[in-house]
Design a protein around this nucleic acid. Structure first.
Lengths: 107, 107
DNA sequence: ACTATACATAGATTATCGTCTATGTAATGG
DNA sequence: CCATTACATAGACGATAATCTATGTATAGT
């Protein structure tokens, strides 16, 4: 399994402000100025966070005149849950393999 | 919703090496020396990563003689999936609220 | 007792990250 | 055309994180 994209998603989510942004977007589209109202940091900081979220494939942006409308990528919602299930399940994709020592003990 | 613990989990998972450790532990218990065999970094670095995972409530450790046996916390598996579902669902817990501008447009 | 093994801790270093100010750009309106 | 609004970019800075070497501690075997 290739966790490269999953790690990028996790990194993007592992910030309380960005997590709040995802929460805000989870029920619909918002423009940057609307999102900014929920935070204390500056506008360039929001711009930075939105870029991180876009690069991780979490959010996509549509320009409408002066406004940038942000939404969650549906593919992200699917893939993140899928990758999480795959990671935490002890299935055939699991990386784990018993050590030589433990194999000896088992024999 | 309180995302404090969820953010801590995400931060701990947002590292490719720690994600691989979680994957290794997802189908059973392993001791540190077994985990270390799968990586190129040093033993103190592994010790550091295991501490991060423990502090996030992802992993617990049991000492057995010389060995430290690590396992995934079952509570983590449950809570992480639950928090993820809650974050990404557009339900009543959602933070989002329409801006004044959008409310005006809607009126 | 001595040695080896398994792991933790301390401290330093380098890289990455979150945030800021300053400034640029593009669209809108008078 | 000029001002305003919405947003992006550049560069700097302080904090945090990932890694290392050196060393400490505890357990097991001889």
């Amino acid at each position: 399994m290739d966790y490269q994209n999953y790690v990028q998603m996790l990194k993007a989510m592992a910030d309380p402000n960005r997590l709040k942004i995802i929460d805000l977007l989870s029920c619909g589209s918002l423009c940057a100025c609307d999102i900014l109202q929920h935070f204390d940091f500056s506008q360039p900081t929001l711009s930075h966070h939105m870029k991180v979220l876009q690069n991780a494939g979490i959010v996509f942006a549509v320009k409408d005149g002066k406004w940038q409308h942000y939404s969650l990528q549906k593919r992200f919602v699917q893939e993140f849950k899928q990758n999480t299930d795959q990671l935490l399940a002890a299935d055939e994709h699991c990386l784990c393999q018993r050590s030589d020592r433990e194999k000896d003990v088992a024999n």
